[in-house]
Design a protein around this nucleic acid. Structure first.
Length: 854
RNA sequence: GCGGGUGUGGCGGAAUGGUAGACGCGAGGGUCUCAAACACCCUUUCCGCAAGGAGUGUCGGUUCGACUCCGACCACCCGCACCA
């Protein structure tokens, strides 16, 4: 080996050096430059949990590859970073360890920023903010007031999880098996008056606009489509018999009015006004309803719970058959939030209704049969797709064969003509409840005045800052029991009044941060010129777990910002392209506390299945998404200090395709480091070479180089970073074995550095400089592949016999089909297989394959 | 329970309906070395000495040809509106 003894790849020195150089040149500062096209790359900003983990490294490296690649393509790039800093963990930490959520949060941010910076991400740190900065949430309060005035905010009652021992509202994740996570008390459903955003005003628009999001994954659009849940159905009222006063009618909504003649019962939600009315005077009803309210507030809990009903004794008349009286049940699986909170049951064609009917001995008359069968329903409901043709026995037009869809429309038309209800379009999407009875969130800028009622704060008084003097030694919302903070003046009449103590859902914070990044220090939520230039986000990158809520709320919020004048009309769909990366998974380690509840432990605190500190054995739960609450997070800091940031970046981008989950393993990090060290050594060797005389090997190397440019470029464009890396490996193999002249190898090495720069920017920068590249590789234009160098003269055509590969032939790339056929038929394997017969069929796919069918 | 997704060697994975296993890891063999590390070369889907055969979660279908498209099933993952 000719390399000098001191020549060694030392990332620590290289990385610090180039990060300093980038900072000095302000390479990553986003500049509004009307002369250049802009590109806005955004990764979902992190929650400051305390330390970065491999999921962050993977997520932010992906964005960085895109940002650096686009910069090389000549775009003016905006690539910012901030912190989704409000939320429960800060309050939990305050309760567990003492201290203040603010100190905990800002402390975590400082640590994580320090951990992130050595990664060498091309971020414009001058735009950084945290959502818990008063400068940020004050602007959010201003928008809340604007939205209130625009009719997009209102108050109504909604149910929450109530812990009767701790006297506090619980989040769904704090309810475990129906019990409070701290107190262990049975959780109750309780109604509170809460603030709501009118996202339902936009149901139809949010649904229709999904079609325009062509650069979003189809699965995300489908999930949102189903979540919004448009349905067409019939709404009508049953008239009641023996019902309490004011309940002479029960409104129901059904998507299957074609089954109205197969109805055998009516059921209402336990939260339905009728149930509430009966509950007041009937102990049995009260007991049943109370029982229903023990089921959690989640749809999942409701769906999984055993289906139960209570016969109220009330009857309704069938709208088309006065003789027929149907029982009215209160049923635990009916949602008050959907439709009218009341349904009719057609057991023959709905499994849940059938189970219910069988349980309570109700009939289940068939409405239609399959075309080829006429067996009455017994234990399995007959629920064919609505597009399938079936034979109606109890349709509105007698015995008729039609699809469910046709029958539904016909039924609606018939019912309307008879004056029984009307066809309506409904959505599953519910309004967005934003009230949280918690401290660490954006205060809702509202004042409750005895004379004026509910009054928005004056904008001049914003931001309404959270008070610092709070304690977390007792459960509940510290704002609610604060002695002075709640006292304020009514902005309307000047009388003394009480401040709203609810804070905002943290989803509000993350619904507009992308817009704030365009002018993070502005005295208004956004600045028109900046928003006009930078919006929309050209590429948004984040986890699939945000497919519905965060992304749907952001889409709504952008529209609300358009309506209130904070964003241009063109920004109502804020994310032009979306990429959902897979999650980084890891095993979970738990022990139990004295009450049997799970305590989670960090991987770094566990060794050989035992806690390092106490030796207590831990339970190992199979890999799951890395999450701060489960503490199954891996610390990348160790990898970076041992091998450098480029190794960490290279490793997380290689192997797994970015959209798929990856299980963290330390095995590959060493290998990634060795590879980068080999590349560095190769560059040293090439740098020492003489220029030399051109040879045929030069042409081969240049062909390989242009192929690499074309392949890597395409792979990065397609978000196939693992393939880009595989192609870089292949080019490395070619280059390191090349016998081309020094001049050619130097050229190839410089291009190699450019191609790997998005993934390993520090190493690329070092090689670029060593090979005499001009300026910084971070600012060099992306290389272009010469199409002439990609053309191949001869190709290998595989020959299949009956679809199985049996042979191959070398042919000129542009050989005529007839010639290929002749050559194929002359091939030994083909001659042997044909045994003198003619082939049944001969398929030649030019440039791809030949298939001989015998 | 409902909605969405994923499934390919020992491992991560590659493959516009056209040579299944690119590239990497690991493993085995070799060169170099006093030795080790590093580096380099070769082998590596399975069965078989070979010829050959089988093979992309399972079962079926469409096609000249299926990892790819369709249907059913199994397993795992994500979401289910107060985790972020």
């Amino acid at each position: 080996m000719s390399s000098p003894t001191d020549a060694r790849y030392s990332p620590q020195a290289i990385e610090a050096k180039w990060q300093t150089a980038w900072d000095a040149a302000e390479v990553f500062k986003a500049r509004r430059d009307p002369a250049r096209p802009k590109y806005y790359v955004l990764e979902m900003f992190p929650y400051p949990s305390g330390r970065i983990h491999m999921g962050h490294v993977r997520n932010y490296t992906m964005g960085d590859v895109v940002a650096r690649y686009k910069a090389a393509q000549g775009f003016s790039v905006l690539h910012p970073m901030g912190w989704d800093a409000f939320g429960m963990p800060a309050e939990n930490a305050a309760m567990e360890q003492g201290g203040h959520p603010k100190d905990w949060t800002y402390g975590n941010i400082a640590v994580m920023r320090d951990q992130m910076k050595p990664l060498g991400l091309s971020i414009d740190w001058s735009r950084e903010f945290a959502t818990c900065d008063p400068e940020y949430y004050g602007q959010q309060q201003a928008m809340f007031i604007d939205m209130l005035e625009a009719g997009l905010v209102y108050r109504k009652n909604a149910v929450v999880n109530w812990d009767p021992v701790d006297m506090t509202v619980l989040a769904n994740e704090q309810v475990i098996d129906g019990k409070g996570w701290r107190s262990g008390a049975e959780v109750e459903r309780r109604e509170l008056t809460q603030w709501f955003f009118k996202i339902s005003d936009y149901s139809e628009e949010l649904l229709e606009a999904l079609d325009g999001l062509e650069n979003w994954p189809e699965k995300v659009r489908l999930m949102q489509r189903n979540w919004i849940g448009q349905s067409r159905g019939l709404q009508f009222a049953f008239s009641t018999i023996d019902a309490p006063e004011g309940f002479d009618r029960i409104e129901v909504y059904t998507t299957r009015p074609d089954t109205l003649l197969g109805v055998s019962f009516v059921a209402v939600s336990p939260d339905h006004p009728l149930a509430k009315q009966l509950e007041r005077h009937d102990a049995e009803v009260a007991a049943f309803v109370a029982d229903c309210r023990k089921i959690g507030t989640t749809e999942e809990a409701l769906e999984k719970a055993e289906k139960k009903g209570f016969d109220t004794g009330i009857r309704v008349r069938h709208p088309f058959n006065n003789e027929l009286e149907l029982p009215v049940y209160i049923a635990n699986f009916i949602l008050m939030d959907y439709g009218t909170g009341a349904i009719f049951g057609c057991p023959a064609h709905d499994q849940r209704d059938l189970d219910f009917a069988r349980k309570y001995g109700l009939p289940h008359p068939d409405v239609f049969f399959a075309l080829d069968k006429d067996e009455p329903v017994e234990t399995l409901a007959f629920v064919p797709p609505k597009t399938e043709r079936v034979r109606y026995l109890r349709g509105f037009a007698g015995e008729e064969i039609q699809t469910g869809e046709q029958a539904v429309e016909a039924a609606i038309a018939f019912c309307e003509s008879q004056g029984v209800g009307h066809g309506v379009t409904k959505y599953r999407l519910r309004d967005w409840g934003l009230s949280r009875q918690r401290y660490w969130g954006c205060p809702i800028p509202i004042v409750h005045c005895e004379t004026c009622g509910v009054v928005p704060e004056a904008k001049a008084n914003l931001p309404i800052c959270l008070p610092d003097d709070v304690s977390f030694d007792q459960p509940g919302n510290p704002l609610d029991r604060h002695p002075t903070w709640t006292r304020c003046t009514c902005p309307k009449c000047g009388a003394s009044a009480r401040r709203e103590t609810d804070t905002m859902d943290t989803f509000v914070d993350s619904s507009w941060y992308y817009a704030r990044f365009t002018s993070p220090r502005a005295p208004t939520p956004t600045e028109r010129e900046e928003a006009d230039y930078w919006m929309n986000v050209d590429q948004y990158i984040g986890g699939i777990e945000h497919a519905i809520l965060h992304l749907l709320y952001s889409r709504f919020f952008a529209r609300a910002m358009v309506k209130t004048g904070h964003l241009p009309e063109s920004a109502k769909e804020p994310f032009d392209a979306l990429f959902t990366q897979g999650m980084v998974t890891h095993e979970i380690y738990t022990t139990r506390d004295d009450k049997g509840r799970a305590i989670y432990h960090l991987p770094e605190d566990v060794e050989d299945g035992k806690l390092k500190a106490t030796g207590e054995p831990v339970r190992i739960i199979p890999s799951a998404k890395m999450s701060k609450s489960k503490k199954n997070v891996v610390d990348p800091v160790n990898i970076i200090s041992a091998y450098g940031a480029d190794t960490a970046r290279w490793f997380v981008m290689s192997d797994s395709p970015p959209e798929r989950d990856v299980e963290w393993t330390s095995a590959g990090a060493e290998a990634a480091f060795k590879h980068l060290a080999r590349v560095w050594a190769l560059s040293e060797r090439i740098a020492e070479m003489e220029e030399g005389a051109p040879s045929e090997a030069d042409t081969d190397l240049m062909r390989a180089m242009h192929t690499a440019i074309a392949d890597v470029t395409k792979s990065i464009e397609n978000f196939a970073f693992n393939k880009a890396i595989a192609e870089l490996y292949a080019f490395n193999n070619t280059l390191s074995r090349s016998t081309a002249s020094g001049a050619a190898q130097k050229t190839a090495m410089r291009v190699f550095a450019q191609l790997m720069a998005p993934m390993v920017p520090h190493l690329a920068e070092d090689i670029w400089a060593r090979q005499g590249g001009a300026g910084l590789v971070a600012q060099a234009p992306w290389p272009k592949a010469d199409p002439a160098m990609l053309v191949q003269d001869t190709i290998t055509l595989p020959i299949q016999i009956n679809g199985k590969r049996r042979s191959e032939i070398e042919v000129p790339a542009d050989l005529a089909k007839e010639e290929v056929e002749k050559l194929a038929l002359a091939d030994d394997a083909v001659v042997r297989a044909l045994e003198g017969r003619a082939p049944k069929k001969l398929i030649v796919v030019p440039g791809r394959i030949v298939n001989v069918v015998i």
